[in-house]
């Protein structure tokens, strides 16, 4: 199965961002012609100093941020001003945030079933079944009846991952998923993400976790000043980067 995915990955592009520019209303030029191609089944880790535009970049992939110049295509669909495309892409792209953004007034189970029922039109029973499966998969099936506020940070982030998975996304975006966690909880979240990657999920991950990047990523990207500076497989990226900027960045974090 893995081999099949790998083979397909070489053929099919799922996300393509070309020369993306973004200016914030205050005039700040956040993205300056960023480029990225993601293959199906691939795990791409984006690293870079803070303020380099990593988060902004992946937030453009599901239209949480708009962009003024360039093109983004998801599975052949252009992400522009057509609301039909935006809605379709949001249905197919999952996102996990630094702050979890679970819905605190709903139980864990309700958090997971809300979107499948409202957006996919599934029956409540069907949605709950799938939700419980996914909760079991991220290892917290017994917490289904609790409210997010009753869970630890690591558990909350795992619920957030399961919530995205409930929509059966074709691409998962992770925006610094472990940055808000206490150190002892980082591992449990990374383990879940690693499991996802092993199952063939296409993922774009913004993170500072070097170990995760080394072990899981197919390619590592360095962003600086709103541009993609370097894209390389992890071994090359961490041991023998081709750009001076990457070397400087690695010196600071390693």
């Amino acid at each position: 199965m893995i081999a099949a995915i790998a083979e397909e990955a070489t053929q099919s592009l799922i996300l393509e961002a070309k020369d993306v520019h973004k200016w914030y209303p205050n005039g700040f030029h956040a993205l300056r012609g960023a480029n990225l191609q993601v293959q199906r089944g691939e795990v791409v880790v984006i690293m870079g100093p803070s303020g380099s535009g990593k988060s902004t970049f992946i937030r453009t992939f599901n239209a949480l941020e708009d962009y003024q110049k360039g093109t983004i295509q998801f599975d052949g669909l252009p992400l522009g001003n057509d609301l039909r495309h935006i809605e379709a892409i949001r249905r197919e792209v999952g996102m996990v945030y630094q702050q979890f953004n679970l819905f605190p007034h709903l139980t864990v189970l309700q958090n997971l079933t809300l979107a499948p029922v409202l957006v996919r039109g599934r029956s409540r029973v069907q949605a709950q079944q799938r939700a419980l499966e996914l909760l079991a998969r991220v290892g917290i099936a017994e917490q289904a009846g609790k409210f997010p506020g009753q869970l630890s940070g690591g558990q909350q982030q795992r619920v957030a991952i399961a919530r995205s998975l409930c929509m059966d996304p074709r691409l998962m975006l992770f925006d610094e998923p472990t940055s808000a966690l206490d150190p002892e909880m980082v591992r449990e979240v990374l383990d879940v993400m690693q499991g996802l990657a092993a199952d063939g999920m296409t993922m774009v991950v913004v993170t500072h976790e070097v170990r995760f990047a080394r072990q899981v990523a197919d390619r590592v990207v360095l962003m600086a000043d709103g541009e993609v500076v370097e894209i390389a497989p992890p071994e090359t990226f961490f041991t023998n980067p081709s750009h001076e900027r990457t070397r400087r960045f690695l010196d600071q974090i390693l």
Binding site: I5, E8, R40, Q73, D82, R84, A88, R120, D168, G200
Partner: peptide, 23 residues
């Protein structure tokens, strides 16, 4: 695309279907 995370029946609503919507 054999992953259990993206069952084919969910591909309705046509991201890929139909003529090239990009144009």
């Amino acid at each position: 695309m054999g992953s259990n995370l993206t069952p084919p029946q969910l591909r309705r609503g046509g991201l890929n279907g139909g003529d090239n919507p990009g144009l």
